[in-house]
Design a protein around this nucleic acid. Structure first.
Lengths: 196, 196
DNA sequence: TGCAAAAACTAATAAGTGTTAGTTTTGTAA
DNA sequence: TTACAAAACTAACACTTATTAGTTTTTGCA
């Protein structure tokens, strides 16, 4: 059944999660009811449970998909043989494109992950901390190699991550300023401030 | 009644709003029930309505108090006769201290303002936009005076605002890294990247 | 065409929501 | 001590919540 449907948009589960991401972003996880989600899909609330286990499971899917994407990119960047500044540039660029391409999902992962239930809450929180500490290590190496000024690595990482996270504020301004322009300006701003 | 109480912590309304800010930050505006808030204060939910008009009114108080504080500081900074870089430094410093001193309130204003009802929602949204555009003007003048590189002012403002907003991530790390250290590092990072 | 499975439906559950009405307790000042 | 007002209480309202059970419809394949 519905194979054509599936080949276009993925399984119905995928459709539900996609729509949920959009609603969770706009109204929050708690602020979005299963009835509202169902109505947006064109189905009764109870029918959703033929495809998903619970409301919380939807949030898990969204958050861990995003976390996984960022982790994979970090793995790849760490492996690549290039300068530290170049690695940071790659990471920042990836953040920017994720924020633009899968805005709803990234936003929800950033804002609603605290609504996850255990053990997912701890798991997600640990992944975030791990991501941060690996970026800190990256900067430390850059300082050792004298590519980067003698700054406080942790503060630098938080500043960079916060700045790119704030790209969510750009939603609605995308027509006025091109993504490319945002990208080059932000990378310059954030890396000129620390590069030697 | 309770005049001693009042002189210490302000009116009972103030106590309610303070506790609400703490809960709203941890569990979100919708995620916090009036019963839960009441229990945290040591009272029945209905008793809260002797001091506040509605749940929504609490959120209004929090959001507009914060917005007002930032606006006042911006007014003062604009008036002060100093370099543009110095003005930006002042503003960034103010953001950092607000985030550290009234963390709950600033966090709630940043994350939960979308739950405001009209006309407060529009009012708040307009204040944010006004704040941004006045910072953009500041940077434009800095470029004219050749104090600042020829960057995209809007991107720079968003980058700075996002970075300082991200200071909320520092909650819990405050003991490890001193505020002063965070402050000087962030200001250098954010201003070295754009100063000529 | 008939069968089995997938996915929709209706109806109900138990719990929780903000808020109000009406009443009782508490604290202050005369 | 009495009177008044502030602020607490109990109980209830009318809804909304996520989720389940049981049933019917729809679908794809043999």
């Amino acid at each position: 059944m519905s194979k054509i449907f599936a080949s276009k948009n993925g399984t119905k589960k995928d459709v539900i999660i996609k729509k949920a991401a959009s609603l969770f972003r706009k109204k929050g996880f708690i602020g979005t009811s299963m009835r509202e989600l169902a109505e947006n899909i064109g189905v009764e609330a109870s029918s959703l449970y033929n495809h998903i286990g619970s409301k919380s499971e939807i949030l898990q899917h969204i958050c861990f998909k995003v976390a996984n994407d960022f982790m994979l990119q970090l793995n790849e960047t760490e492996k690549s043989e290039t300068t530290t500044i170049n690695k940071l540039e790659k990471l920042i660029s990836f953040h920017i494109h994720m924020m633009m391409d899968v805005y709803d999902e990234v936003y929800v992962a950033n804002h609603e992950w605290k609504q996850l239930e255990e053990p997912f809450l701890s798991n997600f929180s640990n992944q975030r901390k791990l991501y941060e500490s690996r970026m800190i290590e990256l900067i430390k190496k850059g300082i050792q190699k004298k590519e980067i000024k003698n700054i406080h690595p942790q503060v630098a990482v938080f500043t960079i991550l916060s700045a790119v996270r704030g790209l969510e504020l750009w939603q609605g301004h995308k027509k006025i300023v091109s993504i490319k322009e945002i990208e080059t300006n932000m990378i310059n701003h954030l890396l000129n401030g620390i590069a030697k």
